[in-house]
Structures are given as C-alpha cells and as structure tokens.
Simulated assay, not measured.
Amino acid sequence: MADKCHLCLLGLIFLSSLLTGTSGVDDIHVFISSGENVCLPCNNDPHDCKSTTWIYNNRHSAAVELIGLGIKKKDTEKHERLSLGSDCSLNIKNITKEDYGSYSCQQYVDGQHYKEADARVYLHVLHVSPSSSQTEISPGSSVSLSCQLYSSYTGISCDGWIRSEGYQLFWVNQTGVKLTISDSRYQISAPGYCILTLTTTLLNEDDNREWRCQVTHRNQVKTSATYTFRKPAPVDIKPLIPVSSSNSETTSRQTPAAAPEQGSSSLSHISREILIVLKTAAFAAPTVILLQIICARRAERKDLQHQEEIMMNTVLE
C-alpha cells in the first residue's frame, strides 16, 4: 500500500512537471538558509518592469501580491525587506522560515495577463535553532539543535517532495565530516525527512565550535545553516557595600567606628582656636612694643622737666 502511495506521489509530481512544461518556462528551486539575502530571478524576459507582478503563495495561506506592475505593495508583512532588481528579479533581505513557498513572476501588457510568460520560483528555507525548551547553554549542559527545511511544491508536503526528489539532510562538524549515530557523543534523530535533530553534551573545548546542517542533492550541497557555540562571558561580581541597618546589634557595632571621627573633629576644632590665638598674638606684639616705647619716652621727658625745675629753683634761691 505504501509503495502504491509512493508511485501515486511520483505520478503527481511528473504530471505537474508536464503541465509546467507546456508553458515553456521551467520551475526554479532556490535553497537558502534563514538570515541571508536572496534574489529570485524572473526568467520570462520581461521588456519592462512596469509590466511585472510578483505573487507569493504557500500551502498554508492565500496568494499575496508583493509587486504590482513594478510597484511594491506596502500592505504586506515583508514589504520593508523587498525590492525589485533592474532585471525585474525579486530581492528579499534577511530571509525567515516563514518566507518559504512559491513566487510567481507574471507579465501584464496593455492590461492583459500573459500566462504563458509566467515564471515560478520555489523558495526552500533551511533553519537551525536550539530546542525551545533549552534554558541554559554552557559547558556541561546538554543541547539539542533542530535543523528543519521549510518547503512546499505544488501542494505537496516537504516530506513527500524531498523524499521523491532525493534530497537529504546531514549534520557535519566544522571540518565538513559527516556526523553519524556511531559517534557516542552525538545523538541524531529524524522525526521526518525535513527535520534532523542533533543532541550533544557541551565541553569547554567546544567554545567557538560550529555544527552545520546541510541540504544535499546527488552529493551536491544546496545550502547549509550553521550553529556556533560560544561560552557565556564571566559575570563580574562586585563586592557588597555595607548599608546601615536599624538593627540594634548592627548599630552597636558601628558606634565605635564613629568615635575616631568625633575625636578628630575635636582636635581639629582646638587646632583652629590655637591658630587664631597665635595669629592674634602675632598681630598684637608690635603694638605692645610700640606702646612701651612711647611710655618710656614720656617718662624720660617728665624726668627732664622735673630736673630742670629743681635747677631753676636752686638758682633763684
């Protein structure tokens, strides 16, 4: 029964390719990893980009017009990341996993849609991320990395298409060596053809180590997404500054520490008073000496006058 379903799936894909071939334009498959920029070609030889319209669609949403007759639509979620190239190609910046799906380049001349000139581009996005339940990534902890290819083709699921076309997902180390389940350090599981998980315990020497997930087709790498482990930076622990507390024990311990400050304050006050006295004495000393000289001279004058009076009285007698 499974073989019949597989044959039926292959028949649908073959029939789809025949129907696409009748338009004279081959479908294009572009593989890209999330976070990168991509350019989707419009291979229908447009004469003027003013006649070009880009339509986006995936199996989970209705068709959305991104570019209408050469003008970017502003009511779309991704309009800020879109631009139209000089050759009418569609440029998308910072690809996300939600950008996967089909992009159709259509031509309108004199208001008429020339379906035979439509060019369809299928965008397949590869995304790698730690498990959503991962709370700490540091040496000694276990980390699970999920690699998933987001893809759809003519309504067929990613698992069905990648299996029928012979695409494969692999985990490789930073030297490009394929990781296998035979390595006891790694546990690799595949919940589906488009999902591949890698679980390992981190070591100190894993700092700046890369693990890369690849999409290959007939031994040719279509795209890859890398996860790099970096040890968290050490946290600086600042010394705690004691804070005064209302606790009586804490207060009693802090009281002796305040005594030297009071003593130093008293000494400082006494020193200032002595300095004032010395300054006053230095200023008053010359004044005292001058007064003493004046008083001495006055005394001498009185003595002279007294002697003169005595001599006069003696002469008169």
Rank of each mutant, 00 (worst) to 15 (best):
residue 98 E to P: 04
residue 253 R to F: 03
residue 70 G to R: 00
residue 180 T to H: 06
residue 151 S to T: 09
residue 154 T to Y: 10
residue 162 I to N: 03
residue 269 H to D: 15
residue 298 R to V: 03
residue 164 S to L: 05
residue 314 T to F: 10
residue 11 G to P: 04
residue 69 L to H: 11
residue 155 G to W: 06
residue 121 V to A: 03
residue 178 K to N: 10
residue 121 V to D: 04
residue 239 P to Q: 07
residue 68 G to I: 04
residue 238 K to T: 15
residue 303 D to W: 14
residue 158 C to H: 06
residue 190 A to L: 03
residue 266 S to L: 14
residue 214 Q to F: 03
residue 188 I to R: 01
residue 200 T to L: 15
residue 162 I to W: 00
residue 43 N to L: 09
residue 227 Y to N: 06
residue 24 G to A: 01
residue 195 I to Y: 09
residue 50 K to P: 02
residue 86 S to Y: 09
residue 66 L to F: 07
residue 260 P to Q: 09
residue 287 T to S: 12
residue 159 D to T: 09
residue 261 E to T: 13
residue 221 V to R: 05
residue 206 D to A: 09
residue 231 K to M: 11
residue 165 E to R: 12
residue 312 M to E: 14
residue 191 P to T: 11
residue 44 N to R: 05
residue 256 P to Q: 02
residue 119 A to N: 05
residue 263 G to E: 15
residue 285 A to K: 15
residue 206 D to V: 03
residue 27 D to M: 03
residue 29 H to P: 02
residue 212 R to Y: 00
residue 190 A to Q: 10
residue 190 A to G: 07
residue 121 V to P: 00
residue 124 H to N: 14
residue 201 T to E: 11
residue 79 H to T: 13
residue 83 S to H: 01
residue 143 V to L: 08
residue 160 G to Y: 02
residue 100 Y to F: 08
residue 241 I to D: 10
residue 172 V to R: 02
residue 258 A to C: 13
residue 191 P to L: 09
residue 23 S to D: 06
residue 229 F to P: 01
residue 39 C to N: 09
residue 258 A to L: 07
residue 237 I to E: 14
residue 230 R to H: 09
residue 85 G to A: 12
residue 272 R to F: 06
residue 265 S to M: 08
residue 150 Y to A: 12
residue 228 T to D: 03
residue 85 G to I: 03
residue 110 D to I: 01
residue 167 Y to C: 05
residue 66 L to G: 00
residue 75 D to N: 11
residue 285 A to L: 15
residue 58 N to A: 01
residue 52 T to Q: 12
residue 136 E to F: 12
residue 163 R to M: 08
residue 73 K to E: 13
residue 262 Q to C: 09
residue 276 I to C: 12
residue 166 G to R: 13
residue 233 A to T: 15
residue 215 V to Y: 00
residue 145 L to A: 04
residue 150 Y to F: 14
residue 97 K to D: 04
residue 158 C to M: 01
residue 247 N to W: 02
residue 35 G to R: 05
residue 293 I to M: 10
residue 300 E to S: 11
residue 176 G to Y: 03
residue 24 G to T: 10
residue 301 R to N: 06
residue 154 T to G: 05
residue 98 E to F: 12
residue 287 T to Y: 05
residue 270 I to T: 14
residue 127 H to G: 04
residue 261 E to G: 07
residue 124 H to P: 01
residue 262 Q to E: 07
residue 121 V to Y: 02
residue 110 D to A: 07
residue 253 R to H: 11
residue 213 C to P: 05
residue 287 T to N: 04
residue 198 L to F: 02
residue 85 G to M: 02
residue 34 S to K: 14
residue 216 T to D: 11
residue 222 K to G: 08
residue 100 Y to C: 05
residue 279 K to N: 15
residue 96 T to S: 13
residue 246 S to D: 13
residue 153 Y to D: 02
residue 294 I to T: 15
residue 88 C to L: 10
residue 106 Q to W: 01
residue 132 S to P: 07
residue 145 L to E: 00
residue 133 S to M: 14
residue 61 S to Q: 15
residue 203 L to Q: 09
residue 315 V to H: 09
residue 222 K to R: 14
residue 21 G to Q: 08
residue 212 R to W: 00
residue 33 S to M: 05
residue 158 C to Y: 01
residue 9 L to Q: 05
residue 305 Q to K: 06
residue 60 H to V: 08
residue 3 D to V: 13
residue 223 T to L: 13
residue 220 Q to F: 07
residue 179 L to T: 06
residue 33 S to V: 03
residue 277 V to N: 13
residue 291 L to H: 06
residue 187 Q to H: 10
residue 144 S to V: 14
